[in-house]
């Protein structure tokens, strides 16, 4: 019989027990089920729709559940030109999203105002809300959006949620482990 390497997850012993770090499990759950808030404001939204459709299939990354209620969303994809008239509405929708939440600035306009250097356009949505991933392009191709989504997944997988939310408890546990 060939020797088997020990793995964290083994289908043969499914239903028994696996060991992992709490953060790793939490991040794994979070990053593979990012429900996007499609904040489609201009032509980037067309590429966002293409990303969601069958050829590019954002469902491969667990982000196919576009929700039009901010209360059910994890990541806001700001796709398009943010005018000053729309700016506070975008901010308000962002504020209605439950924590933890992330923002992708898709395309030149959402990142910096793009070619719209004018009285009517907010020069980048990061002036109002914190942005996690910027995607270049005018508009970016669906591959670029998927690459941005994967970058966000990487970022989420590095997140130390438990440590950040319960610093005292973590300290205590580490002390107990050390002694």
């Amino acid at each position: 019989m060939s020797e088997k390497r020990a793995t964290a997850y083994d289908s043969k012993i499914e239903g028994n027990m696996i060991f992992t770090r709490f953060d790793a499990a939490l991040n794994w759950v979070r990053k593979n089920s990012l429900w996007p808030m499609p904040m489609g404001l201009a032509c980037c939204a067309i590429e966002l729709m293409a990303t969601a459709a069958s050829r590019f299939d954002i469902a491969r990354f667990g982000a196919e559940v576009m929700r039009f209620s901010p209360r059910q969303c994890d990541v806001m994809i700001v796709a398009g030109t943010v005018t000053y008239k729309m700016a506070l509405a975008v901010k308000r929708i962002y504020e209605q999203m439950p924590e933890p939440k992330w923002v992708i600035a898709m395309g030149a306009c959402a990142s910096t105002g793009g070619m719209y250097r004018s009285y009517a356009t907010l020069q980048g949505i990061d002036q109002l809300i914190p942005v996690d991933v910027y995607i270049s392009g005018c508009p970016p191709r669906p591959e670029a959006l998927l690459a941005g989504l994967m970058k966000l997944q990487e970022k989420i997988s590095r997140h130390q949620s438990f440590r950040d939310q319960k610093p005292k408890l973590t300290e205590k546990l580490e002390e107990m482990l050390a002694s």
């Binding site: 000053y84 008239k85 700016a87 506070l88 105002g113 070619m115 250097r117 004018s118 009285y119 009517a120 356009t121 907010l122 020069q123 002036q127």
Partner: peptide
């Protein structure tokens, strides 16, 4: 609560 505008930096366009 309605809207705001700022002066856009013009260099580089």
């Amino acid at each position: 609560d309605v809207a705001f505008t700022k002066v856009t930096p013009m260099e580089g366009g």
